[in-house]
Design a protein around this nucleic acid. Sequence first.
DNA 1: TCTTAGACTCGGCTTC
DNA 2: ACGCGCCGAGTCTAAA
Length: 274
Amino acid sequence: MPELPEVEVIRQGLIPHVVGRQIVAVACSSKKLRLAIPQKDLGRWLKGGRITAIQRRGKYLIFLLESGAAMIVHLGMTGRLGIFPATAPPALHDHVVFSLPEGMQLRYNDIRRFGLIRVLSPDQYREHDPFRDMGCEPLEQEFTGVYLKKMAAGRLQPVKNFLMDNQVVAGIGNIYANEILFHAGILPATPIGSLTLARWEKVAEKTREVLLRAIACGGSSISDFVNSSGQKGYFQLELMVYGRAGEACRQCAATIGRQVIGGRSTFFCPNCQK
DNA sequence: TCTTAGACTCGGCTTC
DNA sequence: ACGCGCCGAGTCTAAA
């Protein structure tokens, strides 16, 4: 799925097409995503409203409406948001279509339907932070080695699972957890209790670098990610370990290993990572 | 020793 | 067969 960099690329791509525009109409399929599509609330709070901003928190996009309402979108594994002319033929698995002025549409497409769309009324959005349990944003100042070490206190899990825990750090999934740990030189199975502050600082630094680089590359198109204009990213060309089991390490030529940790494929260089 | 909270793992959702 | 994610159920562990 889109992880933080892909979601950020989509956000930036949507802004010029959507912010400041009115939503003329909303049409939904009846199939449910992770939860049912809130058709009534989309009609009540989105239809006829004007979008004033698109924000991101972790892997979630937040569309803010002039009324103070908000729509929260999560893309799950295969969700896509794209801008299309209304005349473009609909795709299989289009689930929500927002009609915009001048014959344009914002379409939500999701093959596996693990995504999520929530609508919060102005009161709900004002009174209740939907992200209160989420960990810190890895691109913000408060994300430091000290923060990571503090969050890891009293826990034993593998460092990779810890990095993918959105209550610790928001937005890191399987691809970027693998890549970050490669660049930090740490084996993914390392129990977090044993990491020194210096190594946590390295994790924080590499997290920032990898995510920023991936955003600059337009995200990773591993199987089918495309941005809001249908273009692929190219960070997959810079992957050091993810999906490279059995291939030569691009840094030392050792054979990249694979193991399953927490039910997820995990890739590492047995030589570059200790 | 029993209870409980919290940490952790795993299965299931769905399609190609 | 595998998978860019998430949550809830169930298990395990350690503290009280």
